[in-house]
Nucleic acid binder design. Structure first.
Lengths: 158, 158
DNA sequence: GTGATATACGTAACATGTTAATAAATATGA
DNA sequence: TCATATTTATTAACATGTTACGTATATCAC
C-alpha cells in the first residue's frame, strides 16, 4: 500500500464521503420500495414534494431546492409532464422561465406516498432517538456552513 | 399544501436524506477538480483507492467496499482496464471470479491524487474541528447500525 | 437604442444508479 | 451422479449525474 508524504490516507471505509453515503443508503433503503410501488424515483419524489410545499416554482428554484442539476431536472420535468403529474406554463414577467405546477393527479400521488415518508421518519426517530437526530442535523448543517465560509483557498479551481 | 393524517411531512430542506446529501456535496465539492484533472470520476477513484489498500480483490468485494452496484462496477472495471490502470486475472479456485490488480500506472495515479485527498481531509478537520468530526462519524455509524438492527418490520418489501 | 454580458433553459455525450434478465461456474441434496 | 439451486459476473434498458455547448431572453454599459 502506497503512503504519501509520510502520511497515510485515512482508511477507506472511514472516509467522510463514504460514511455519509452509507448513512444515506441506510436511511433511504426501506423507503424506496414505497416509491417504486408508485413508479416514482427518489428524485421525482423530491420534485413532487417541493411543489407540494410551494407550487408554481420555476425550474431554477426547483433545481436549488431539490439539489438536482438543471439537465437532470429538465428530463425529470419532461417525464412528469408526460405522466400528467405536473404542468408547465410560461412566466409572464420573464419569457425564459417555465413555471411548474402540480396537477390534481400530482397532488393525489403526493397524498398517497407522504404517509409512507412520515412513517419512515417516525421509525428513524424511534430507533435513533430524537436528541441524537437533532444533534446530527446540527452537525451536518455546521459542517456545510464551515466548508462554505469564504476561501477554500487551498484549491484554486474555481 | 397537503397535510396527511393530521401530521405534516417534515420540511423538505430539513429532511434527513437531503441533509446528508448536502453534506456530501459540500465535502466533495473542492476535491472533484483534482480528480477531473486526472480524468478520474469519484467512483473510479474509490476503486483505485480500495485496490491500493488491498490489491487482488474480486469484483464482489470491490462492490462491497466501494458501495458500487455490480453493474456500475462492471463498467468501471472495463473502463479502467482499457486505460491500463487495473488488470484482470482469473481466480484459480473459482473460475467465476475475476481478480483485479492495480497496474504500475494505477499505483502512479494513486500517488498523484492521494496528496490532494489528504489535503482535503486536513482542511475539513481544521475547519470543522477534530472532535466534532469524530462525533459525526460516531453518529453516522450508530445511525446505520440502528437502522439495520433486525426488523424494519414496518416494511415488508424484502 | 445598440452591443456586450449575463441568465434561464435546453440538448448532447458519456459515466453512473438501478432493476431485470441472462450465462457460466459452483454448491447442494436426492 | 444428476438435477436443482446458488453464486458470480455481465448485459440490457432506462433514469440520473455531470460537463460542455447552444439558444433565447433579459440586463447592463455606453
Amino acid at each position: 500500500m502506497d503512503t504519501i508524504d509520510d502520511r497515510v490516507l485515512r482508511g477507506f471505509d472511514r472516509s467522510l464521503p463514504m460514511a455519509l453515503l452509507r448513512a444515506r443508503e441506510a436511511v433511504m433503503k426501506k423507503f424506496t420500495p414505497s416509491l417504486r410501488a408508485n413508479n416514482m424515483s427518489a428524485q421525482q419524489w423530491r420534485v413532487i414534494r417541493a411543489l407540494n410545499e410551494q407550487d408554481g416554482l420555476d425550474i431554477s428554484e426547483l433545481s436549488d431546492r431539490c439539489h438536482l442539476l438543471m439537465p437532470s431536472l429538465s428530463r425529470i420535468i419532461q417525464n412528469l409532464e408526460k405522466r400528467d403529474l405536473v404542468s408547465r406554463s410560461q412566466s409572464e414577467e420573464d419569457n425564459r422561465r417555465s413555471v411548474i405546477n402540480l396537477t390534481d393527479e400530482g397532488h393525489a400521488v403526493f397524498r398517497k406516498i407522504a404517509p409512507k415518508s412520515i412513517e419512515r421518519y417516525e421509525f428513524i426517530t424511534d430507533r435513533f432517538g430524537y436528541g441524537k437526530l437533532e444533534l446530527l442535523y446540527e452537525l451536518l448543517d455546521e459542517l456545510v456552513e464551515k466548508l462554505q465560509e469564504g476561501g477554500d483557498t487551498h484549491d484554486r479551481s474555481t
